[in-house]
Design a protein around this nucleic acid. Sequence first.
DNA 1: TAATGTGAACATTTTCACAGCA
DNA 2: TGCTGTGAAAATGTTCACATTA
Lengths: 235, 235
Amino acid sequence: MKRPRRPNERKPNRRGSIPPLTVKRLSLYLRYLEESAEANQTTVSSRQAGRALGLTDAQVRKDLAHFGQFGRPGVGYYVEDLAREIRKIFGTDQVWDVALIGAGRLGRALLGYEGFLKKGFRVSAAFDSNPKRIGREFANVRVQPMAELTEAVASGRFRLAILAVPAEAAQEVTDELCRAGIRGIINFAPVRLAVPEDVAVVPVDLAVQLEQLSYFANSPTPRKQRRQGKRGGQS
Amino acid sequence: MKRPRRPNERKPNRRGSIPPLTVKRLSLYLRYLEESAEANQTTVSSRQAGRALGLTDAQVRKDLAHFGQFGRPGVGYYVEDLAREIRKIFGTDQVWDVALIGAGRLGRALLGYEGFLKKGFRVSAAFDSNPKRIGREFANVRVQPMAELTEAVASGRFRLAILAVPAEAAQEVTDELCRAGIRGIINFAPVRLAVPEDVAVVPVDLAVQLEQLSYFANSPTPRKQRRQGKRGGQS
DNA sequence: TAATGTGAACATTTTCACAGCA
DNA sequence: TGCTGTGAAAATGTTCACATTA
C-alpha cells in the first residue's frame, strides 16, 4: 500500500540530506577560497565566487546555507573562516592517510602528486602484486606485497584507498578492502564496483572523460547561451 | 514584457538539447555493451543494463530514446548495433588523435594508457617546456618543445588535448591551444579554465575527487536506502 | 509473454526576487 | 547601500504505469 503524497511536500531536512551536487560544488568553493586567501583577500561575496566559478550568486549562497549561516549581510564571507568550515565538512581539517593499490604507471604518478597533501591527504602506503615492483620505492613510499594489505587497512590507519589496478583485478581487490574495513575508494579501473552500503566509491574513468569531451567537442556549440557570454561551459 | 508560462510547459525538444546527465550515462551504457559483446550476448534489455549499472530500467530506456528508437519490444537492444550507434553519437566510430601537453609523471602515465586506444583515442603527440624532457620518448611518442604545439594543433590533426601541466601554466597553455583551434580539453590542473564558447572543457581534479570521497566516507551512511539494497551508491 | 517508448506524476535543482541585516 | 538567507517559482531530471509491438 503506497502512501499518497502531495505534489511538493518535502521531507524535513534531516542532517545528511545535502544535495549531492552541492557537495560537488563545495570542493570548488574551497579551492576558490584558498586562492583568495593566497591573494590576501579577507572576504568574498557570493557574486565574486559565482563569477569565478561560472555559477550564479544565488546558487553559491544556497549551497553554503545548507551547512549553516556563514556569511554577513553587507560584507560577504570571511575567507579563512569559511575555508575552515568547509574543510570540517569534508573532514579534511586533519590529514588522512590513503593507501594506494596498484603501483603501475598511473599509481606511481599519483604517489608523487603533491596536490594531495595540500588538501589533507597523504598517500603513505602502496601495494602491488607484481614481484618486480614490490620493495621498490617511489616518492619515499616502499611498495608492499598485497598480502600485507588486509592488515594495514584493518589496523585502522587507512580509511580511504586509491584503486589503480587492472580492470580484471579491481573487484577482487575491492572485496578484500571492504572486508578489511575500508570506508571509501577512488576507482580508476573502468569497472563498476560492487560494495556494501557503507562504503563510498568515487569512479574516475579516464576513457569516459575523453568520450564526454569528444561528444561536446563534436556537437555544434549547443552550450548554453548567456547574455554577453564569453566563456564556454565546463562540465 | 515577460511571456507568462504555465507551470510545467516544456519547450519542444530541439535537436541538440540532450540532458547532460544522459550524455554521462551514455558512456556507461557503451562500456556495458562492450562487456556484453565480449561475453557473446547478442541482446540486452533495459532491465539488465540498469541492474548492472545501478539505474532503473525506465531511465535506460528514456536516455536511449533521446537519440532514436534502437530497441525492439519483446527483445531488447541488439548489443553490436546499439554500441555502434553510441560510438557514432560520441564521434568515436573513428580514431582521433589527441595531443598531450605536459610530460610529467601524470602525463607520461596517460601516454601509456592502453584504455584510450580501445575507446578510439590515440595520444600521439606530447609537448613540454622542460628541456630535460624534450626529445625523450615515452610509449613510442617523442616529447616535442612547446614551440611546436601551435603548428601541430593548427594543422588540424588534433581536435582534442589532454592538459597535464602545473596549475600556474594551465591558462597560458590553454590560450595557446584555443588560438590554434583546439575543440576540447581534458584539464587535470586544479584551475577553472577560461575558454571561448566553442571549446569544451572536461575538468578532472584528482584532489577534488578525494575530497568528495572523504565527505561520503565520513557521513554516517546517508546513502539512499533501497529495498533489498546490497550495494553502496556510486557517484 | 516480454520488452520498448512515452505521457504524466513526482522529485530535485536552479533561479528569482525580496525582506532584513550591517 | 551592499549583501546574505530564503520562500516561491521555474526548470530540469527521474520514476511510474501503460498502450503497444514482436
